[in-house]
Simulated assay, not measured.
Amino acid sequence: MLSRRTVLAGSAALLTGPARAQNPPLRFGVIADPQYADAPPNTAMGRYYANSLDKLSAAVETLNAQDLRFVVTLGDVIDRDFSSFERILPLYRKLRHETRFVLGNHDFEVGAAHLGQVVDRLDMPGSYYDFVVQGVRFVVLDGNDVSLFAPPQGDPRWQLAQERLAAAKAAGLPNAKPWNGSLGAAQRAWLERTLAAAQRAGERVVVMNHYPVLPENPHNLWDSGEIVAVLARFPNVLAYFNGHNHAGNYGQAHGIHFVNFCGMVDTPDTSAFAVVEIAGDRIDIRGYGREPSRSLPLRAA
C-alpha cells in the first residue's frame, strides 16, 4: 500500500533541479485498463475485474494528493456491460483534477443498443479530440473507429474492418486479431491536420490512443505502420501513450517515445498507474504498483 509520505517524496524527487524550478513542469496522471465488471476473475489471464474498484479508489486518493493538470484513462474503463459504468464512474468524480478518457475495445462490450451512447456516457467531446495544456497539444485518437465491435453491423466501417482484418491475416501479421482496430480516413486526415496546426503554433504534441503502434506486437492497431509514418513527419511529436497490452511495453523511433502503460485490472491486489511530468528536455514517468518509472530524454526542438 502506498503511503502519503511515499507519494509526496516521489513528487519532490520529480520536481528537483534549477531548470524545473524556473519553468513549472506539466504534470498529469495516467491510468490504463481498469476494465471493471461485476464478474469473477479470469485467473488464466490474471484479470480481476471487480477488484478494480478498490484499486481505482486508492489511485484517486494518491493522485488527489498531487498537483496535476488532468488525469487520463487510456481506454477500457469497463470490461463489459453498460451498467458497469454506473459503478466505476462515480469513483472518477472524486478526482479533484480534470478527467479525460480514451476509448478502448472493452468500452464497447455493452450490447448493440448502447454502442452509440458510450461517448456521451464518458462525457467526451467526441470519439477523437485534442486539447492544449501549457503549450503541449494532446491528441486523443479512437482506434475503435474501424473495428468489429464499435460500429454497428452493416455500418461501412464495420464492413471495412472485416476487409482489413482479412488482409492482415492473409499477410500473416501478428496484430491480425479481432480485438484490435484502426483509424478511418476522416480521422486520419484530422490527425494530419491537427499535427500540422500544432507545428505551426509551436506546440509540442503527445498522442494518446488505447492501442499501441510500436514496437511490433499482437495488440497493435491494424494500421500501426501507417500511423507511425504520419507521426514521424512531425518533429514536434514527443510521445505516444497507450494501454491495451496489459503487460506494458516501450519503444523509440524517429525521436518519439512509445509508452505502453500497464493494465490496472491485472493481479488480485497490485495496481498500476502513473504520474507523468514534462519539463525541459525530459519526460519523467513515476510509476506506481506494476507500472515502471522511466526518464525519457526529448530531442531538441
Rank of each mutant, 00 (worst) to 15 (best):
N245H: 07
N245I: 01
N245F: 09
H246Y: 07
A247H: 02
A247S: 11
A247P: 01
G248T: 06
G248V: 04
G248R: 06
N249Q: 04
N249H: 05
Y250K: 14
Y250F: 10
Y250W: 04
Y250Q: 07
G251Y: 13
G251H: 10
Q252Y: 11
Q252A: 15
A253D: 08
H254S: 15
H254Y: 13
G255Q: 14
G255M: 13
G255K: 10
G255W: 15
I256M: 11
I256S: 14
I256T: 13
I256R: 09
H257A: 13
H257W: 02
H257S: 10
H257T: 13
H257K: 11
F258R: 06
F258T: 08
V259G: 03
V259N: 13
V259T: 12
N260H: 10
F261M: 04
C262Q: 08
C262Y: 03
G263F: 00
G263K: 00
G263S: 13
G263Q: 10
G263P: 05
G263I: 03
G263V: 01
M264K: 01
M264Q: 05
M264R: 05
M264F: 05
M264C: 06
M264D: 04
V265C: 08
V265Y: 05
V265R: 08
D266T: 12
D266C: 10
D266H: 03
D266F: 01
T267A: 02
T267P: 07
T267I: 04
P268T: 05
P268K: 03
D269K: 06
D269V: 09
D269E: 13
T270Y: 03
S271W: 02
S271P: 11
S271R: 03
S271T: 15
S271F: 05
S271V: 09
A272G: 06
A272W: 03
F273H: 12
F273P: 01
F273V: 00
F273G: 09
A274H: 11
A274T: 07
A274E: 08
A274F: 09
V275T: 14
E277L: 14
E277T: 12
E277P: 01
E277W: 02
I278D: 02
I278T: 11
I278W: 11
I278A: 07
A279P: 04
A279C: 14
A279F: 08
G280W: 13
G280M: 12
G280P: 00
G280E: 15
D281I: 09
D281S: 10
D281V: 07
D281Y: 13
D281A: 11
R282A: 00
R282Y: 15
R282T: 11
R282D: 00
R282E: 04
I283E: 01
I283P: 13
I283K: 02
I283D: 04
I283H: 06
D284A: 15
D284E: 14
D284R: 15
I285K: 02
I285T: 05
I285F: 06
I285G: 09
I285S: 12
I285C: 07
R286L: 15
R286Q: 14
R286G: 11
G287S: 02
G287T: 00
G287I: 04
G287Q: 05
Y288T: 04
Y288D: 00
Y288E: 02
Y288V: 04
Y288I: 00
Y288Q: 03
G289H: 01
G289Y: 01
R290W: 03
R290V: 03
R290N: 01
